[in-house]
Amino acid sequence: MSAVIRPPHALTDPTRIRALASIDFDNPALRAALDKIAQRTAALTGLPVSMVTLVLDTAQLIVGSCGLDDSWMTAAGGTPVEWSFCANTVTTGRPYVLPDTAHSEQAASPLVTVDGMASYAGVPITLAGHIVGAHCVMGLTAQPFTPEQLDQLRGAAAEISDLLRQFSQPTSAN
């Protein structure tokens, strides 16, 4: 019998899931704005990949990105939550930084072993008082992240949170 993977409670919180469900994340205007923010973040941080993710209980949705081009992640629209670095940002509520993914607790993730993501930094995105996702950058080489790069991520994450509010339907959780 195979083991059942159970996500941390933070990912399954019903009010957080309602906040996620309120987002019109298929709206082309929202997607374009999130892609633009991801492009700007990649340029300002000097990293080749930048993403805006919404982390569900079983999957990570990529709702804005730069640098993924025609990758399988773009085609799939996300990753399983078990592979997600951003899920750690959501469950801890803090920035999650991996200067060298090959020597981290996530070294076995296909994002490292197949896609070659060698460094990661992500910060929380909030909506209605809940951490719903992360804004992150990834590098193809191991590298430290500077306070300025993390400040760029935080500033963009605040902008993303404002956009998500604009593209959300009010719920009892909002």
Rank of each mutant, 00 (worst) to 15 (best):
P14L: 06
G46A: 04
A59P: 00
F167T: 07
M1W: 15
F145P: 06
E159F: 05
F85K: 01
A157H: 01
L153T: 11
A173Y: 02
P170V: 05
T171P: 08
I62Q: 05
T141G: 00
V132L: 00
G67L: 08
A134N: 02
V49Q: 07
A142D: 08
V4Q: 15
C136L: 07
Q39H: 10
N27C: 07
L150E: 11
T89Y: 02
G64M: 05
W72N: 08
P110S: 07
V112Q: 03
D70T: 15
L30Q: 09
I17N: 12
S168G: 04
Q152A: 03
A21M: 10
Q60P: 04
Q169M: 08
V49M: 14
A107D: 04
S104D: 06
V114Q: 13
D70G: 10
E148F: 07
L30I: 02
A142H: 04
K36Y: 08
F85R: 07
P28I: 06
H103R: 15
S71M: 07
F145E: 06
C136N: 10
V137A: 05
T12L: 14
D100S: 01
S161Q: 05
W72R: 11
D100A: 09
S172F: 02
G78T: 03
A142E: 08
D35A: 09
S109N: 12
P170W: 13
L20W: 00
Q149S: 01
P124A: 04
T15Y: 06
H9I: 13
A107M: 05
A102E: 12
S168L: 02
E148T: 15
M117E: 10
A43V: 04
A32S: 14
A173M: 08
I125A: 04
A158Y: 06
L54Y: 02
I62D: 01
H103D: 11
G46M: 04
Q60D: 00
A87P: 02
A142V: 04
S65F: 14
R40K: 11
C66Y: 12
G133N: 05
L44E: 12
A107L: 05
T141Y: 08
L163D: 09
G77V: 00
R154E: 11
L163Y: 07
P95M: 05
L44S: 12
T91E: 09
S168E: 01
L163H: 13
L111F: 00
P14V: 03
E148C: 07
G93F: 11
A33Q: 15
S65P: 09
T79V: 11
G133H: 09
C66M: 12
Q143A: 12
E82A: 13
V81A: 13
L30C: 14
L61V: 00
G155L: 13
L98Q: 04
R18W: 03
A108P: 00
T15A: 10
A156G: 09
L163R: 13
G93S: 10
F167Y: 15
V123G: 09
S50W: 04
L20Y: 04
R40Q: 13
